[in-house]
C-alpha cells in the first residue's frame, strides 16, 4: 500500500502515535496527501526476548516499555519521556522516524548499539542504528523493529530539561555497561545533530574498571566526566542553543551527567574507603543489584565545576 501510494507520486506520511506528526501537519511544517496510520498493525506492537537479544516492534509505546524488567535502561529512558499522555501514544517507530537530536530513546539506543529493521517492497533489512540514521528510511519503506543485546550489566539514562515537570531533553546521557564483555558505552544527546558516542571516555573507563567487582575508582569517574566534556566540546556542527541556554553549559552538563551515570553503574570505590557499608538499591535505574543511588563520584570532577564544597 505504501508502495502504491509512493508510486502514485503522493506525499505519504506514516502515522504512529502522532505526537510529532500531527503538530507538524497542523503547523504546515509538513504536508501530506495521504496519512497511513500504523496503529492497528498489530505485528508492529510486539516486543520479545531471544537468548541474546531483545526485539521491540516499531509500534511499541513508551508506556509499554516503562515497566520492562528485561531492559532497565530502556525502561528508564522511556519513563522520562514527556508526560503520561505522550508516553501512552508515542512510539519507538515514531522516535526513529522523527530523529530528534535529544530524543531520549535515540540517546539510549545509540549507547546500546541497537540495530533497526526496515521493510520495503524490496524486502526487509537490518542496519546498525548509526547507518540507519545516516541513510534514513526509504520513501516507500518503514521501520518495523529495533533489536538490542540483552543487558549484560547496569545501564543508566539521565537528562536535563528546562523545568521540574516533564520536558524534552536539553542534554541527555546514557551509559550502558557490559560486565560480561567488559564494555562501557556512553552516548550524549542534545549537543550535535545526533546523539554521539564518547569513544575516548569509554576506552578510558574500560581500563579503569575492576571487572571482577564491577567498580571504578572515584577519580576515574570524575576523569570520565572531564573526557566527555572534552569530546562534547569537539562535536560539530553543534545544535543551535535554545533561549536561555549556552553551548558551554551544555558541555559542562554532559560531563556531569556522564560522570554521575557512570558512577551509578559502577559503584565507585574511593581510594580512602569512605563508602558506606550499605546503600539502598535503585532498581529502576540500572541492572538490579548493581546500582547505588548515592556514590561519592557523583560529586566534583567534571561535576565539580562551580560546585560548592
Amino acid at each position: 500500500m505504501l508502495a502504491a501510494a509512493h508510486e502514485s507520486g503522493a506525499a505519504v506520511a506514516l502515522l504512529s502515535g502522532g505526537t510529532d506528526l500531527v503538530p507538524a501537519l497542523r503547523s504546515g511544517e509538513r504536508v501530506a496527501d495521504a496519512v497511513v496510520a500504523l496503529r492497528r498493525v498489530l505485528e508492529l506492537r510486539v516486543r520479545g526476548a531471544g537468548a541474546d537479544s531483545l526485539t521491540i516492534g516499531a509500534g511499541v509505546t513508551y508506556a509499554d516499555l516503562v515497566g520492562w524488567s528485561l531492559s532497565p535502561g530502556l525502561a528508564r529512558a522511556a519513563r522520562v519521556v514527556g508526560s503520561v499522555q505522550i508516553r501512552n501514544t508515542g512510539t519507538v517507530g515514531g522516535a526513529l522516524g522523527s530523529v530528534r537530536p535529544a530524543g531520549d530513546l535515540l540517546t539510549y539506543l545509540t549507547a546500546a548499539d541497537a540495530e533497526v529493521l526496515t521493510a520495503s517492497p524490496r524486502g526487509t533489512r537490518w542496519r546498525p542504528l548509526g547507518q540507519f540514521l545516516a541513510e534514513g528510511v526509504e520513501a516507500d519503506g518503514l521501520v518495523t523493529a529495533v533489536r538490542l543485546a540483552r543487558p549484560g550489566g547496569p545501564q543508566v539514562h539521565v537528562k536535563i530539561g528546562g523545568r521540574q515537570a516533564a520536558y524534552p531533553a536539553i542534554v541527555s546521557c546514557a551509559v550502558v555497561v557490559d560486565r560480561v564483555r567488559h564494555r562501557v558505552a556512553c552516548a550524549i544527546g542534545g549537543v550535535g545533530r545526533l546523539p554521539a558516542r564518547m569513544g575516548g571516555a569509554e576506552s578510558f573507563a574500560v581500563d579503569e574498571v575492576d571487572w571482577t567487582t564491577g567498580t571504578i575508582p572515584v577519580q576515574a569517574a570524575r576523569r570520565f566526566g572531564d573526557l566527555v566534556v572534552e569530546a562534547v566540546a569537539g562535536i560539530s556542527p553543534v545544535l543551535p542553543v535554545g533561549p536561555g541556554e549556552s553551548a558551554d553549559y551544555r558541555c559542562h552538563a554532559a560531563g556531569v551527567l556522564a560522570s554521575r551515570a557512570l558512577a551509578r553503574c559502577l559503584h565507585p570505590q574511593a581510594t580512602r574507603a569512605t563508602q558506606p557499608a550499605t546503600t539502598t538499591e535503585l532498581a529502576t535505574d540500572a541492572q538490579p543489584g548493581t546500582a547505588r543511588p548515592s556514590d561519592p563520584t557523583a560529586g566534583p570532577g567534571a561535576a565539580g565545576r562551580g560546585g560548592g564544597s
Partner: peptide, 12 residues
Amino acid sequence: PGGLPAGADVRR
C-alpha cells in the same frame, strides 16, 4: 532539582 530524569545527587 531537575525532577526524575536529572538524577540529582542529594549530597550535591
